Simulated scan of single mutants.
Amino acid sequence: MTILITGGAGYIGSHTCIELLNAGHDIIVVDNFSNSKPEALKRVSEITRKYFRTYCLDLQNREGLEKVFTDNEIEAVIHFAGFKAVGESVHFPLKYYENNMNSTITLCEVMKKFHVNKLVFSSSATVYGVTDTVPITEESPLKATNPYGRTKQMIEELLQDLYDSDREWSIALLRYFNPVGAHESGRIGEDPNGIPNNLMPYISQVAIGKLEKLQVYGDDYPTVDGTGVRDYIHVVDLGLGHVKALERMLTTRGIDAYNLGTGKGYSVLEVLSAYEKAAGKTIPYTVVEKRPGDVAVCYADTSKAKEKLNWEAVKGIDEMCKDSWRWQQHNPFGYEKQSKMLVKN
């Protein structure tokens, strides 16, 4: 039996593929490569020394997706595929609703047709919106504040309705906080399009010289150093969390949400300091105005995942930064060949 990974060439998807293969699972990957590169999957095979089928396919292509299910004996699905940039979603909300909702609906309809009812969904802590109460538990109110987060929240509600209509389903909703880091091999990592939206890839691109300086949004929060505190989780720990969730889904029925984080917050300047230590250099930054809606402190209560999934994050901020820097050093232009990029310049 095989596990279908949608969006498996992406940052979190590719790391999860490695952990699934290392755990002895057979996988196939469906990805349209709109925000990822086939090279990531080639490197997954190199790292694990295992082969798996890959389909270049958009999930909204129902006929193509049904052929994938016809040609493979699929036992369960881990669903990563979807647009994911918060800022872009604000400017292009219809694009996000159309893609993220429709692709999930098509996937679930095809799963239902082929009697596959085990699903792990890649959700996000953005479903909680702005909250002043920490740590955030799975029972905290859902009040997403941007189109990207609302698509995640709406899909969670859709999946709850699906389970309510058919109690044979087993669904895990994984709400992750801030994935960072890279595989210890330095062969796969985060390869954002354009200027990064998230802190650590932004720091890494300043460290490698692609960007001039880091912008720190506000330094007068009521925190240890005045900068915002967030829960960062190593992407390998996150991948292992998906393996644990999958293995629980294979033997149970029901629907449950789980926070995946470290349960600890680090400030922007603490992350910057750890990255400087890993890179062995000073990384310039400038303080700019706060972003509207940002809260001072945000971190997860992860006790439910520890209790029910037998999972907890083990990698700390130093390891997150070391692995991120190794990836950035070995791949200064991401998955693009360096020589090709230099010719363009």
Score class of each variant (00 low, 15 high):
214 L>Y: 01
197 N>S: 09
181 G>D: 10
187 R>L: 15
196 P>L: 03
184 E>G: 12
209 G>K: 14
197 N>V: 07
172 A>N: 13
182 A>H: 06
180 V>H: 00
195 I>L: 12
182 A>L: 08
196 P>V: 07
173 L>Y: 02
180 V>N: 03
213 K>D: 12
170 S>N: 03
201 P>K: 04
191 D>A: 04
194 G>Q: 06
180 V>W: 00
172 A>G: 12
168 E>F: 08
216 V>F: 01
200 M>W: 04
180 V>F: 00
174 L>F: 06
189 G>A: 05
201 P>S: 10
211 L>V: 10
182 A>V: 08
184 E>T: 14
176 Y>C: 05
169 W>G: 12
217 Y>A: 15
208 I>F: 04
180 V>K: 00
207 A>Y: 06
206 V>F: 07
171 I>G: 12
172 A>Q: 09
194 G>L: 01
170 S>P: 09
205 Q>W: 12
196 P>Y: 02
176 Y>V: 10
188 I>P: 09
187 R>V: 05
185 S>Y: 00
168 E>T: 15
200 M>R: 03
211 L>T: 10
179 P>H: 00
192 P>L: 01
191 D>R: 00
187 R>Q: 13
212 E>G: 04
181 G>N: 07
208 I>D: 11
183 H>W: 01
206 V>C: 10
205 Q>K: 13
206 V>W: 02
188 I>W: 05
188 I>N: 07
174 L>G: 08
189 G>F: 00
214 L>I: 15
212 E>S: 15
170 S>M: 05
190 E>M: 04
170 S>C: 10
179 P>T: 08
211 L>N: 12
214 L>K: 05
185 S>H: 05
193 N>Y: 10
209 G>E: 12
173 L>H: 06
181 G>W: 02
192 P>G: 08
203 I>E: 01
178 N>D: 08
218 G>C: 08
197 N>C: 02
187 R>G: 13
193 N>H: 10
216 V>M: 06
199 L>M: 10
181 G>L: 04
177 F>A: 05
169 W>A: 09
177 F>Y: 14
200 M>V: 15
193 N>D: 13
173 L>V: 03
206 V>P: 06
182 A>G: 09
200 M>D: 11
208 I>R: 15
210 K>V: 13
170 S>F: 05
168 E>C: 11
175 R>Q: 10
206 V>H: 04
192 P>Q: 08
177 F>S: 13
184 E>H: 09
198 N>F: 03
174 L>Y: 04
197 N>H: 04
171 I>Q: 11
172 A>S: 14
175 R>T: 08
203 I>M: 07
206 V>N: 05
214 L>F: 02
196 P>I: 01
190 E>P: 02
183 H>S: 01
200 M>H: 12
211 L>Q: 14
179 P>G: 03
214 L>D: 04
218 G>R: 04
205 Q>M: 13
185 S>W: 00
212 E>T: 11
192 P>A: 02
184 E>P: 08
202 Y>H: 14
216 V>L: 11
185 S>G: 06
171 I>S: 09
187 R>I: 09
189 G>T: 04
199 L>S: 12
175 R>N: 11
218 G>L: 08
195 I>S: 13
175 R>L: 02
179 P>V: 05
168 E>Q: 15
199 L>H: 07
171 I>V: 11
184 E>V: 12
208 I>C: 08
180 V>A: 00
192 P>K: 01
188 I>E: 11
195 I>C: 13
194 G>H: 05
169 W>Q: 13
206 V>K: 09
179 P>L: 01
213 K>Y: 12
196 P>M: 09
209 G>C: 11
